[in-house]
Computed example of a mutant assay.
Amino acid sequence: MNNLDLDNTHLGPNRYYDRHFDHDAVKILPGEYFATRDDTMIVTVLGSCVSVCLRDAQLKIGGMNHFLLPNDTSCCGDSVGDSGRYGGYAMEVLINELLKLGARRSGLEAKIFGGGNVLRGITAINVGERNSEFVLEYLKTERIPILAADLLENYPRKVYFFPATGKVFVRKIKSMHNSTIMDRESEYSMRIRNSRLVGEVELFGD
């Protein structure tokens, strides 16, 4: 698996035990992804970023990513080419990891979340809307069916994904007591703006 410069896309290493769900869990941050054959819950918190939960329902192999398209296309050349190429890369690294675990590309199903308009003061470009439009178009092009979607609106979300069953719980965060989510996404956005893709992802077939 190839990586982005600055290691912007990598497996989520943050394992913990979630007492509320009585479940082993992995928390992923912006730029991370995680795939598993085990009954491990995957958790993330989304503002303008988007997460795609992908799963082979028959084989019970699933994973989640957490990504953001570059929001300043003036520094990165063509807005469709560069932003789309980054988003495509973020999707392909997750798909590739699932296929390595034995999932079938033809058996993948998706649930998608995020794309909230939570970055105050940004009116010219709705980053969350661009992220949402990208992932909808990507999954349509790749013929991956979307079973559920919770996108846009004006609030962050906390997403809990159970790959073994395909269940997803979403908690909408209506009031923000700190700027942690926005700070993480802003830092992540700066990293991907200042980096470049290295190579391509080679996908396994069915």
Rank of each mutant, 00 (worst) to 15 (best):
I181M: 04
F204L: 13
I112M: 07
V52H: 00
A149S: 12
H66W: 02
L68V: 03
R15K: 15
A164I: 05
C53P: 08
A35P: 05
Y138T: 06
F34Y: 14
L29K: 13
I146V: 14
L6D: 09
S175P: 01
F162K: 03
E97D: 15
I173K: 06
M41V: 06
E32V: 03
V93L: 10
R120T: 11
L46Q: 07
L98V: 13
M182N: 15
K100D: 07
G87V: 06
K158V: 07
S106F: 06
S132Y: 04
E137F: 11
G81T: 04
L203T: 09
E137L: 11
M41L: 15
E202R: 00
L98K: 10
L54C: 04
M41P: 03
R191C: 06
L108S: 14
M190I: 13
L6E: 09
L94N: 06
F34P: 00
L139H: 10
Q58N: 15
D56A: 13
E129N: 06
E92V: 03
L152N: 07
N154V: 01
I146C: 11
S195R: 05
N8C: 07
G107N: 15
A90G: 01
D72W: 06
G62A: 07
C76A: 10
V159S: 05
S175R: 15
A103L: 12
H20P: 02
F21A: 07
S189M: 11
D183V: 13
V118L: 05
L4I: 04
M190A: 15
S195K: 00
H20D: 15
H10W: 00
N2L: 05
D22Y: 02
G107L: 11
E185I: 06
L151W: 08
R157Y: 04
S74I: 14
L59G: 01
I42W: 01
I112H: 02
F204S: 11
A124N: 13
R196W: 01
K172G: 09
G62R: 00
S74H: 12
K172N: 14
A164K: 01
E185D: 15
M41N: 03
G47H: 04
P156E: 03
A25L: 09
V168I: 07
G47D: 08
V52S: 14
H66E: 01
L4A: 01
G63S: 09
D150G: 02
A149I: 02
H23R: 06
I61T: 08
R37P: 08
D206L: 07
S175C: 11
A148H: 15
I144Y: 10
V26D: 02
F169Y: 09
V50R: 02
G62I: 04
K140M: 15
A164C: 01
G128T: 05
K158A: 10
N96I: 07
D24C: 08
A25R: 10
G88R: 08
A148T: 12
